[in-house]
Design a protein around this nucleic acid. Structure first.
Lengths: 339, 339
DNA sequence: AAACCCCGGTGAATCGATTCACGCGTACGA
DNA sequence: TCGTACGCGTGAATCGATTCACCGGGGTTT
C-alpha cells in the first residue's frame, strides 16, 4: 500500500513537506504544492488514519452505545448525535448493547482499545459496574436518556416522571378510573420513572395507588407487547385504559387487541411512549409521549465534544433534562363523553 | 496513557515478553506470565488498536454502508452482518448514506483512511462511479441487496423481480384487474426490478401493461407513503389493489386510507415489501414480501471475510441470489368471493 | 565431550504520519 | 553593511505494538 514516503519520493520532496501539503497547505509554495498534489493523485495515496491516531494519541471517533438498535427511537437519537459529530469533524461508531450488560462491557473494552474520543452511552448494567471500570481509562463519557446526577459524567435525558404523569393524566382526564401500565424489565430507570409519574397522576386524581395496575414484560419490543396484549384480554374486569412504557409495546398490544376484535379507543384507550414514526403511522394512530430523540443525541454529542476540547479541569459536568410532550391521537380519544 | 513499555518496566521484563503474554501466552513461563498479568491489571493497561493496525497494515473492522438506517430492514441486515463479523473477531462500522451519493463518497473515503478490512455496501450512486474509484485502494467490497454480476465484486441479493411477481400475482389471483405500484426514486434497481416482476405477472394474467399503474414517490419512507396515499384517494376510478415497493410506503398509504375512512382490505387491498416487524404489527396486518434480511447480511459478511482471508487470487467472486417469500396477512384478504 | 536443540526471554527494527528544531537563501530595516 | 526576520523545506525523533534474529543455559543425543 502506498504511503507518504512514496508520495514524497515521487514529488521529489521530503515527507515533512507532503505532510504540510495535506495539513497546512498555506505553508507550502504553490509550485511544490501542486507537484505533491499531482503525486498524491497519481499514486492514489490515502493517509493512514491509524498512523495519525498513533501519533495523536486518540482517535477522531466517538462511540454511541444504545440499548436497542431495532427501536427507531434510538436510531433517531443516533441521527442527532451523528450530525453534531459531523459538524465537529468526528465520526460516530454506533453499537448495540441489546440491553445485555455483557455486550456492554465488551463494547466498552473495544472503545478503550480504539482510544475513542469519547462515549455516549445508554447504560444496560443496572449497577453501573462496567462504566465505573471504564472511567479509569480517562475517556470521557456522557449518559444519554438517563440522568446521572452525582456521577462523574454529564448526562442528557428526558424527564420520564413528567412523561409518565402526562400520559396518565391524559387518560384520567378522559374519565378512566384505572390504568394498566405495561412495561419491563422493571429495573430500567426509564420504566421505573414513568411508572412513578403515572402514580403521581393517579394520586393527584384522588385515586388509590392500586388504580395503576402493573403488567410486566421481559423486553421492550413488539413481541412482548403482543404477549402483554393477550394478558390484558384475560383480565377481568377488562381494563379501559392502557399506558405502555414504549411505543413498540403499544404497537404489539394494539395488534393483539385488534385481532381479538377489541376496539381502540372504543373499548380500550391506549397510550404509548417515544412517539416513534410508526406510532403515527399505525392504522389507529397512537397517542404517545414524544421525546426529542434527535435533540437529545445532538446535545449529548455536543456536551461530549465540549468536554474533550476544553481543558480537562475547566469542564464542569452538566445534566440536561428535556421535557416530554404528549401527542394526542386517535388511540386515546374518548368516544363517550369527555374529550 | 499507559503503554506496553510501562507494563514491561513494572513487571521487570522486556516489551517483547509483554506482547507474548497477550498474544501467545503459551510461549511464556507461568511465573512470568502471572507477573505481567498483574502489572497489566495494576496499571489498567489496554493495548492500542491503532498501533496494532499500523503494524498489521489493516484494521479489524468491516464497514457496512446502508441506504437508510431508519428502515428496519437495514437494521435487520446489519444485525446479521454484525453477528457474522463477531464470530470472525471483527467489528462492524455501521454507516448511513441516506441514499445520497455525496455521503456515500465521503464514507468510502473515510473507510479508505481507516484501512478497513472490507466494505459491505448498498450503493446509492446509480452510476457506480464512487465505488469504481474506491476499488483502486485494493479494499474488497461486497454488494448487499443488489446484484452485481459483471462487477469486480461479490454480491448478495434477493430476487426482486420474483418478489414483485409474487406480490402482483397474489393480487391478481384475488380477482383484481388493475394494480397501482407505488415506489421511487425510479432509478433504484430495487424499484425497477419489483416493477418488472409485477409487469410480468400482469402479462401472465393476460392483462395489458397499463393494468399496472405507477405512482412515483420521492423517497422510500412513511411520509412519502402518506403522500402517495393522498394521490390514490384522488384517482378515479379508485384503485382496488395497491402494491408498495416498501413497507414504509405501505404503512404511510395505510394511514392515509384509514384516515379517509377507506377500508383495507374491504375497499383497497394493500401489499408491501420487506416484511419489517412493523408490517405485522400494524393494526391491519400488512401482507408483504419477506426478504431474508438478516441472512443476507450474514452471507455478505461471510463472503467478504472469505475474500479477505483466502489468497487474493484464489478468490472467485460469487453472486448469491436469495428468494423472497410472500407473507399473506389481513391487508390483502379478499372479503368478497375468492380467497 | 562435542554437537545440537529447546525453553524463555531480549532488544532492535518496523509500520506511517506528525512535528519541530534547524538550515539555506533572500529581502528588508536600521 | 550587518542583523534579522521570514519563507520554504529538510530530516530525524516520536507514538505503541509486533515480530524476529539471537542469546544463554540446561538437557539430550551420538
Amino acid at each position: 500500500m502506498v504511503g507518504i514516503k512514496d508520495v514524497a519520493q515521487r514529488a521529489g520532496v521530503s515527507v515533512g513537506t507532503v505532510s504540510n501539503v495535506i495539513n497546512r497547505p498555506g505553508t507550502v509554495a504553490e509550485a511544490t504544492r501542486e507537484r505533491v498534489q499531482a503525486a498524491i493523485e497519481d499514486l492514489g495515496y490515502v493517509r493512514s488514519e491509524s498512523a495519525r491516531q498513533l501519533r495523536a494519541g486518540r482517535s477522531r471517533i466517538i462511540a454511541l452505545l444504545v440499548l436497542d438498535m431495532a427501536n427507531p427511537f434510538f436510531v433517531d437519537l443516533a441521527t442527532g448525535a451523528e450530525r453534531a459529530a459531523r459538524e465537529a469533524g468526528l465520526g460516530v461508531m454506533l453499537c448495540n448493547s441489546a440491553q445485555d450488560p455483557q455486550e456492554e462491557a465488551e463494547y466498552l473494552g473495544l472503545f478503550a482499545e480504539q482510544r475513542v474520543r469519547g462515549v455516549l452511552v445508554t447504560p444496560a448494567d443496572p449497577e453501573g459496574h462496567t462504566l465505573r471500570a471504564f472511567a479509569r481509562h480517562g475517556i470521557p463519557y456522557v449518559f444519554v436518556d438517563r440522568t446521572a446526577a452525582g456521577t462523574d459524567a454529564c448526562s442528557v435525558s428526558v424527564d420520564d416522571v413528567e412523561g409518565g404523569a402526562l400520559a396518565a393524566r391524559h387518560l384520567l382526564d378522559a374519565g378512566h378510573r384505572s390504568i394498566v401500565y405495561v412495561g419491563g424489565p422493571a429495573h430500567l430507570p426509564q420504566i421505573q420513572d414513568r411508572r412513578t409519574g403515572a402514580l403521581a397522576a393517579v394520586a393527584e386524581a384522588g385515586l388509590p395507588p392500586d388504580a395503576l395496575v402493573r403488567v410486566d414484560t421481559e423486553r421492550l419490543d413488539v413481541a412482548s407487547g403482543r404477549d402483554a396484549g393477550a394478558r390484558l384480554l384475560g383480565m377481568s374486569p377488562r381494563p379501559s385504559a392502557v399506558f405502555c412504557a414504549n411505543d413498540l409495546l403499544a404497537l404489539g398490544v394494539l395488534q393483539t387487541l385488534f385481532a381479538a376484535g377489541v376496539s381502540v379507543p372504543g373499548d380500550i384507550a391506549l397510550v404509548g411512549y417515544d412517539d416513534i414514526e410508526f406510532a403515527a403511522a399505525a392504522a389507529v394512530p397512537l397517542t404517545s409521549v414524544r421525546q426529542p430523540a434527535q435533540r437529545m443525541g445532538r446535545l449529548a454529542a455536543e456536551l461530549l465534544i465540549e468536554e474533550t476540547n476544553g481543558a480537562a479541569e475547566a469542564h464542569a459536568h452538566r445534566h440536561i433534562v428535556l421535557r416530554p410532550e404528549l401527542v394526542v391521537r386517535a388511540s386515546s380519544l374518548a368516544p363517550r363523553g369527555r374529550p
